[in-house]
């Protein structure tokens, strides 16, 4: 399955999603370098409307909003991807072991996963962050703790399904060594479901982080966080519309890209 061949078979919306995801990732990685102005210092008069000089206008202190939004995107997108990455790693590992070994190992691990799954996700995450205190690291930890069980469950279900299939039995009978069996004959079968779930989850994590920052649980004031920027300028909606709307729109764009990319991956993998 050549990657390029895959690409040409997608619809315009899915291609847009994938390109967008790539662009956003690159932009946020390079945010420190490509921001036109310093996001933290005053560079012009306050409350300027969007113009050629300041694409997103300026905020209440006179900081360039575009630079702040870019930095805010970096503070949201990259941690979100990290959360998903870590949760995938732990979840897939647990799921693989659980599904492949079966027996009492499976039973025990599944009870643990069940416990995590049953607890309402946002509730506990919010509470943990409220207690441990704000900060990117705590937020990431809280979210990873409550996201990994989903991937464990998905991996385990797929692995168990594959174990019963004739092709796995044939491989077992063939005398292939266990390491090879697990990593070449089982795990790749779980990858499609995992990838789809992970891409769609990026949007959910972005929303969760924006939500927490809106509620004041993100990083403290001078940090450019998208949700907080919207929350602080709610009252100016009718006067300086760009202040609450543009950061929220940036969040929207990130989620939309992730969702489109996820949908595209899902339809390609389903058809493949």
């Amino acid at each position: 399955m050549s990657g390029l061949g895959l690409f040409t078979r997608t619809r315009w919306a899915d291609r847009a999603g994938l390109l967008s995801v790539l662009t956003i990732t690159l932009m946020t990685l390079a945010a420190g370098v490509i921001t036109p102005f310093d996001p933290q210092s005053r560079v012009a008069a306050a409350y300027l409307a969007p113009s050629a000089a300041h694409w997103f206008g300026t905020d209440e202190i006179g900081r360039d909003l575009f630079s702040r939004v870019l930095q805010g995107a970096q503070l949201t997108w990259l941690p979100a991807v990290t959360v998903i990455g870590l949760a995938l790693f732990f979840g897939a590992a647990v799921g693989l072991v659980s599904g492949a070994l079966g027996g009492w190992v499976d039973l025990t691990l599944q009870r643990v996963v069940d416990l995590f799954l049953v607890l309402p996700p946002m509730l506990i995450a919010l509470t943990v962050v409220a207690v441990l205190g704000p900060g990117i690291v705590n937020t990431v930890i809280a979210l990873v703790i409550f996201w990994w069980p989903w991937y464990a469950r998905i991996t385990r279900d797929e692995v168990r399904r594959l174990k019963g299939r004739p092709h796995f039995e044939a491989a077992q009978l063939g005398g292939i060594d266990p390491f090879c069996l697990w990593f070449r004959y089982l795990l790749p079968g779980a990858v499609p479901a995992l990838v789809v779930a992970a891409t769609l989850d990026v949007a959910n994590v972005v929303l969760a982080m924006a939500l927490m920052s809106f509620l004041g649980l993100g990083q403290p004031a001078p940090a450019a966080e998208l949700g907080a920027m919207t929350a602080r300028s709610l009252e100016s909606l009718t006067v300086y519309w760009w202040l609450p709307i543009l950061p929220a729109a940036a969040v929207w764009l990130m989620c939309l890209s992730a969702n489109l990319a996820g949908d595209g991956l899902r339809s390609v993998l389903r058809g493949a």
């Binding site: 092709h167 009978l173 005398g175």
Partner: peptide, 28 residues
């Protein structure tokens, strides 16, 4: 034999879909 080999009713599902035929044969 330690390991008798088996041939199945549905040949398509007897092969792991994402690995090449040669690899699956050769892995033995």
């Amino acid at each position: 034999d330690l390991r008798p080999q088996m041939v199945f009713q549905d040949p398509a599902s007897a092969f792991t879909p994402w690995l090449r035929i040669g690899e699956q044969i050769g892995d033995r």
